[in-house]
Amino acid sequence: MLQVIKSVLAAFLGVQSEKNRQQDFQSRSPWPFIVTGVVMTLVFVLVVASVARWAAS
């Protein structure tokens, strides 16, 4: 699971090493990545929103 989160974070930054990528693509199903990606996107939006809220107060 940690590996999946790390890979999704790497995708957010747009940087991924070939080794980790190969490891990801050994996985049988893409679904953990897709679900984690969607969740992390929501988390990302919430984080930016709460930073904005905090900065505005």
């Binding site: 995708a11 930054l13 747009g14 940087v15 991924q16 090493s17 070939e18 996107t41 939006v45």
Partner: peptide, 19 residues
């Protein structure tokens, strides 16, 4: 250079472009 990064960066740009 960085094929995988290029793919990931494209996906990342696409997602961010909605917010």
């Amino acid at each position: 250079f960085g094929y995988a990064s290029m793919v990931y960066a494209t996906a990342s740009i696409a997602l961010l472009s909605f917010v």
